[in-house]
């Protein structure tokens, strides 16, 4: 976890802060809802830490590009928003794991903003049109699965 933060523009203190926030997030969530950790605890803890750090980086980027005083939240609101974002992320990942391996691979490239020219090369497709159709079908499958889930109703208007 520390290495992840240090390798992504963070400091040792940032790593410790994120680690503490992640523990708190899991404890508070566990108190309020019956959620199941489906991997080993340390793997889940790392995922939460990683996402909290992604959040911090994203916030810094937005601070640079947007009005700094646009959205001010209390610490508790920030923690609550981060927790619900984590829940939404888990829903997306859960559904992503339900689709085919081929779809997962092409969507990983797509979400990483890989150009279609590179997707064609990486996936061995005949043309960009074929790759686009493939992305379209895989994304539709994923969005349908997400929309069908009752939890999404609560998570979409964040």
């Amino acid at each position: 976890m520390r290495n992840f933060v240090l390798n992504n523009k963070g400091t040792r203190e940032d790593a410790e802060d994120i680690f503490q926030k992640a523990l708190l997030q899991i404890a508070v969530r566990y108190q309020r809802e019956s959620f199941e950790i489906r991997t080993e605890f340390h793997i889940y803890l790392f995922a939460v830490c990683k996402n909290l750090w992604r959040r911090e980086i994203n916030k810094s980027k937005n601070r640079v590009t947007n009005d700094e005083f646009g959205n001010l939240y209390t610490d508790e609101q920030e923690s609550a928003l981060a927790l619900i974002e984590q829940k939404r992320y888990e829903l997306f990942k859960e559904k992503l794991n339900l689709i085919s391996e081929n779809c997962k691979k092409i969507l990983a490239l797509y979400f990483a903003k890989t150009s279609y020219a590179d997707i064609v090369k990486a996936g061995g497709y005949n043309s960009e049109t074929v790759a686009r159709q493939r992305v379209f079908k895989c994304k539709k499958k994923l969005t349908d699965l997400i929309k069908e889930d009752e939890r999404f109703k609560n998570l979409k208007d964040l």
């Binding site: 996402n51 992604r54 959040r55 980086i57 994203n58 916030k59 937005n62 959205n71 939240y73 609101q77 609550a80 928003l81 619900i84 974002e85 939404r88 992320y89 997306f92 990942k93 992503l96 969507l107 990983a108 979400f111 990483a112 903003k113 994304k139 994923l142 969005t143 997400i146 208007d157 964040l158």
Partner: peptide, 16 residues
């Protein structure tokens, strides 16, 4: 989805 599943991004919520 794009922001949450792109490792270099994050889907941030704003609706307090």
């Amino acid at each position: 989805m794009q922001a949450a599943l792109d490792e270099n991004d994050w889907a941030q919520a704003e609706n307090k």
